[in-house]
Simulated scan of single mutants.
Amino acid sequence: MTLVKFAKGNTNKGFNSAYNDVFESFFNADQLLSKSAVNRIPAVNIAENENEFQIEIAAPGLNKEDFKINLEKDQLSVSAGKQEENQEVIGNKKYNRREYNYSVFSRNFTLPDTADSNKIHAEYKNGILFIHISKKEELKIQSREISIG
């Protein structure tokens, strides 16, 4: 067996280049597709405090009427859809061009046993959908200091 020792900064450029080309083409096969796929799934933050769970979904450019929130058993589903159609007027020419742009996503969340499914409300402000899910009163975590005797 032969070990090849590379000096610092002097690596086998031919091997690395071929190796990178194969994996770059595999993982980034269609950059346009991968970017659009990422844009279809909005970022979500989930937080919890002593009284409620909070879900924040970043979905700029939508209206509150575009959202649909459903609860079935312990599954909370949030979806939104919007269709845009563009028409251009440049100077005295009217270009009839129809470019359909569909913005659609759906996310599902499993609610924990401590969530009160009767006390859920949502609001949409500044491009973020806020969903507040209250906790059941009898299951709220009671915190207190315990003295050592």
Rank of each mutant, 00 (worst) to 15 (best):
L32F: 14
E48P: 02
D30G: 15
L76E: 04
S17A: 01
I55G: 01
D66L: 02
N126Y: 11
E48A: 06
Y100H: 00
A18Y: 05
K68L: 07
K35D: 10
Y95P: 00
F53I: 08
N126M: 01
E72H: 07
N63K: 03
E123D: 09
V104N: 12
K119P: 05
A18K: 14
E24C: 04
G81W: 11
K64S: 10
Y124A: 13
I55Y: 04
S106E: 13
F67I: 07
R107A: 10
N45D: 09
G81L: 10
D116K: 04
S77F: 03
I128R: 15
E88M: 00
G61C: 03
N63P: 06
Y100T: 07
S117I: 02
G61T: 04
K64T: 14
S79M: 13
G91S: 09
D113T: 12
I41F: 13
H132P: 04
E123Q: 00
A122R: 14
H132M: 14
Q54G: 05
E52W: 00
F130W: 03
I128E: 09
E48N: 10
R107F: 09
N108V: 09
E137T: 14
A115F: 07
P112V: 00
A29H: 12
D116S: 08
V78P: 01
A80V: 15
I133L: 05
K82L: 13
D74G: 13
P42C: 06
L111D: 02
T110L: 05
A47K: 06
L129S: 13
E24L: 07
E56V: 01
E65K: 11
D74F: 04
A37G: 08
S77M: 11
D113S: 11
I57C: 07
P112Y: 02
D113M: 07
F109H: 08
S103E: 06
N51F: 10
E137V: 05
N70E: 11
K119E: 03
S25H: 09
L62F: 15
K64I: 07
P112T: 06
G91D: 11
L111W: 06
R40C: 10
G127P: 07
K94G: 03
E72F: 12
H132A: 03
R40E: 02
E85T: 06
Y124V: 10
S79P: 11
E56R: 09
K119R: 12
G81H: 12
K64L: 08
Q54H: 08
V22Q: 05
K94F: 13
Y19M: 11
S77T: 08
L111V: 03
K82R: 09
K125S: 06
N51Y: 06
N20H: 03
E99I: 14
N49K: 09
I133P: 07
L62N: 08
K64R: 08
I90T: 11
L129C: 13
N63A: 00
Y124R: 02
I90A: 06
N70S: 10
V89R: 09
F67N: 14
I120G: 01
E52Y: 00
R98C: 09
E24V: 07
A59K: 15
